[in-house]
């Protein structure tokens, strides 16, 4: 595949155009990667507001109407709702795995079977998150493809 980089002056005009015959999984993967890299979020930690990259987030968690983003070393509180995050970033490898969690597939180390037909998500930061039975099929679709 040929790669062309064209320099422009205005950052707001930056965009990535993919010209392809067919949208293959590889193309989808490039798209997701580009979208993730280009997205910054802002969240609060203590009294301060921080800006951080979406690709740094391991997972989002909803706790009592509040939503938190977890990166390697920091936790940020966001203004969004969990379903908004799920819908906004579903094409950027962020997948709902239970009522309270949306995980980053790029930060997922592995899954392992848990009790009663459920699975455990072992994140790359060694945290473990339960994958609810009802979200197992969509998680499989996101990673393994198919309907």
């Amino acid at each position: 595949m040929k790669v062309l980089i064209k320099r422009i002056n205005d950052k707001t005009d930056e965009c990535l155009i993919i010209e392809c015959v067919e949208v293959t999984p590889d193309i989808e993967s490039i798209r997701s990667y580009a979208l993730t890299k280009g997205t910054t979020l802002s969240g609060s930690s203590g009294e301060r507001i921080y800006s951080f990259n979406l690709s740094e987030v391991f997972y989002f968690e909803a706790v009592d109407e509040r939503v938190f983003a977890y990166t390697k070393n920091m936790t940020f509180e966001l203004k969004s709702r969990l379903y908004e995050i799920e819908n906004a970033y579903v094409d950027r490898h962020f997948i709902r795995c239970s009522k309270s969690f949306v995980i980053n597939l790029m930060k997922l180390e592995s899954i392992s079977p848990a009790l009663n037909g459920r699975f455990m998500a072992n994140m790359k930061n060694s945290e473990k998150i339960i994958i609810s039975r009802q979200y197992v099929p969509s998680l499989k679709r996101a990673v393994m493809g198919g309907n």
Binding site: S29, Y33, L105, M106, I111, P113, G117, L139, V143, M144
Partner: peptide, 20 residues
């Protein structure tokens, strides 16, 4: 059986992450 499913999933996950 669930562990076999997890292994298939983990292999696919590795391919997805390697692609990125």
């Amino acid at each position: 059986n669930d562990r076999r499913t997890a292994k298939t999933f983990n292999d696919a996950l590795r391919r997805l992450q390697d692609g990125c």
